[in-house]
């Protein structure tokens, strides 16, 4: 019982610290100076450099989804719904979640490791002595860039995922290309696309914020950096999945 109480208190303390960290990060949005060069560099790192991994993930997932739906649909003569389900599945769910998880693996880990290393090597202290707030210089640009870049990455991921389904559908499963595209376009609604992009922005915010948080609070030495990196990826992935559930509930609950 005591152990449960202790764990609960520790969890509440972490939630409180994370809430303060989030508030501090957001407060820098309205407190100049902003560092446009840092924001630009973070946009390049998080957005542009993630495109290949996002594209490949979405392409293979879209293709596999088409195969699964076709095989499953064949059990009750519903093979024709492949274009519609691929589109809905990619845009509403798989696109944002898979891109979010890939970003957690690629970006959260890199942010956590970079900032933790900076902390261990006293670069964070050096920033402070050079009259530069580390939250403003390191955290805000990364969080802002990830929040802005992720909807674009998710949009690209959705499109490439649908393309993967199209290639498999028309190349292997015998769908007519024109019909496939028409069915995809007719079935998707603005609401689906909007939910996808909003999920992207929220997942990007989570991925970068958690990376920065673990980096800034890392322990000493190589072990501290390793723990921060591992903890950041796990926490970001779990939070992204939890946020996905809540956002799906908010957008699509009837």
């Amino acid at each position: 019982m005591r152990a449960i109480g202790r764990a609960t208190l520790a969890l509440l303390a972490v939630i409180g610290q994370l809430a303060i960290f989030t508030g501090q990060t957001l407060s820098h949005l309205v407190r100049p100076p902003l560092y446009p060069r840092e924001i630009g560099a973070a946009l390049f790192q998080i957005g542009w450099s993630s495109l290949p991994v996002v594209g490949l993930t979405a392409l293979f997932t879209g293709g596999a989804l088409a195969l699964q739906i076709y095989a499953g649909g064949a059990r009750f003569s519903a093979e024709a719904v492949v274009p519609q389900i691929v589109a809905i599945g990619m845009v509403r769910e798989l696109g944002p979640v898979l891109v979010g998880l890939m970003i957690a693996a690629r970006v959260t880990s890199s942010i956590a490791a970079e900032i933790a290393t900076m902390k261990v090597t006293e670069q964070i202290d050096a920033l402070v002595t050079l009259s530069t707030d580390p939250m403003k210089y390191l955290t805000l640009p990364r969080v802002l860039a990830a929040t802005l870049a992720m909807p674009v990455l998710v949009g690209v991921g959705d499109l490439i995922g649908i393309l993967g389904g199209y290639l498999v559908g028309t190349g292997r499963l015998g769908f007519n290309p024109t019909t496939y595209i028409r069915n995809t376009m007719d079935f998707l609604e603005f609401h689906d696309v909007l939910s996808s992009l909003v999920k992207g922005a929220v997942f990007g915010f989570i991925a970068a914020l958690i990376g920065c948080w673990y980096g800034m609070t890392s322990g000493r030495g190589a072990m501290g950096v390793g723990r921060a990196t591992k903890g950041a990826v796990v926490a970001a992935a779990v939070l992204i999945l939890a946020a996905n559930f809540l956002l799906t509930e908010a957008f699509f609950s009837t």
Partner: peptide
Amino acid sequence: LARFGMLFQGSALFDSLPVWQNVAFRLLR
């Protein structure tokens, strides 16, 4: 803080910035 300069034990240079931007860090912002 503008009154201080500090040399850190491990130098604490910023890996992603070229040498001159490390030196001029305070003068660039």
